[in-house]
Each structure stands twice: as C-alpha cells, then as structure tokens.
Simulated scan of single mutants.
Amino acid sequence: MSDMCDVFCYDDEKVSALKEELGSYDIQSMTKIFKALADDTRAKIALMLCRTDELCVCDVANVIGTTIPNASHHLRLLRNLGLAKYRKEGKLVFYSLDDEHVKQLMLMALEHSKEQKAFA
C-alpha cells in the first residue's frame, strides 16, 4: 500500500483558498516557538513554569540539574521569543510563562505525548 496518490489532481478552489490563508500568517514566528520548545531543556523549563506561578533561576537550575548560567541562558531565550517573562526582586530573578497560550500549548503537547505512549 502506497502513502501517495496514484494520480495527480487537486481541488483548485480549496488549494487556492488555503494558499491565500497561509500567506496571511507569520509562519516564521510560529516556527521559532516550536524550535525553542523542541529543545529538551527548554521544554522541561516551560513545563515546570506551567506547574507554578513563577520560579527563580536558581530553582530552575536545581530542578533540571544544570548550572545557573545555563538555566539563565535557556530562560533568556524563552523570554526573547515572548514565551516567558521575568521580574527582578532584589538579587533574585523570577520567571513565569508569558501568557495562557504558552501554557495551553505545553499542556496539550504533554497530553498528546501521553496518549501516543499509551497506544505504543
């Protein structure tokens, strides 16, 4: 059984409408989000931030078992992409997810991975 069409034909109306719609999206910004979250360390950090209001950089480093500079680097990248935000309190820096969309994206991905594992 082949996973390709045996003939070349397409629905011109549907294809034209989808091409027009795709042209209106900022695909590069969207793929940057997925690239950032495709890194195991940043995915762990984002999941941790889903589970709590905020975490200090030291807490993040401790949970993922890395250095503070390494955790800070990953958190900064998430912040620069608009996925996380921070606030400074004295000498401590606390990070949280930037908005509910990021949290929902991570929780949906986690749920999907659990379902896939159950079917494997």
Rank of each mutant, 00 (worst) to 15 (best):
E13H: 04
S24E: 15
C56S: 15
A109F: 12
A71F: 01
L78Y: 05
P69S: 03
F119T: 03
H112L: 14
I45W: 04
V15N: 07
C56K: 09
S113T: 11
S113M: 08
V57G: 03
D11T: 01
D98G: 05
E100S: 13
E89K: 07
I64G: 00
I45N: 01
T67S: 14
T67M: 02
L49S: 05
Q104L: 14
V15K: 13
Q28Y: 13
V102K: 06
A43S: 11
L55N: 05
D3E: 15
M4V: 14
L105Q: 09
V57Q: 03
E89T: 09
E100T: 08
V93L: 05
I27Q: 11
K19G: 08
M108Y: 12
Q116R: 10
I64P: 00
I64E: 00
G90D: 10
A118T: 02
T41F: 01
D39C: 08
K32P: 07
K114L: 12
S24A: 12
C5W: 08
L97R: 05
A17I: 07
A109P: 04
C9Y: 06
H112N: 09
Q116A: 11
Y10H: 04
Q28L: 13
I45F: 07
D40T: 04
F34L: 15
L77P: 00
C50E: 09
L22F: 14
K32C: 10
Y95I: 01
V7A: 03
D98W: 04
S72G: 07
D40N: 08
K88C: 06
A120P: 00
A120N: 00
D59S: 14
Y95Q: 01
M48G: 08
I45S: 02
K88H: 05
N70F: 01
I64L: 02
G90I: 12
A38T: 10
S2Y: 12
K88F: 02
E100L: 09
C9V: 04
L81G: 04
L97P: 04
V93T: 15
L75P: 05
M106P: 06
D98L: 06
D40W: 02
K117P: 00
E89A: 10
A43Y: 15
S2C: 07
K32G: 09
A43K: 10
L107Q: 15
D12E: 13
E115C: 03
D26W: 09
D99E: 06
H112K: 13
G82Q: 03
S72A: 07
V7L: 04
A43H: 10
L97N: 07
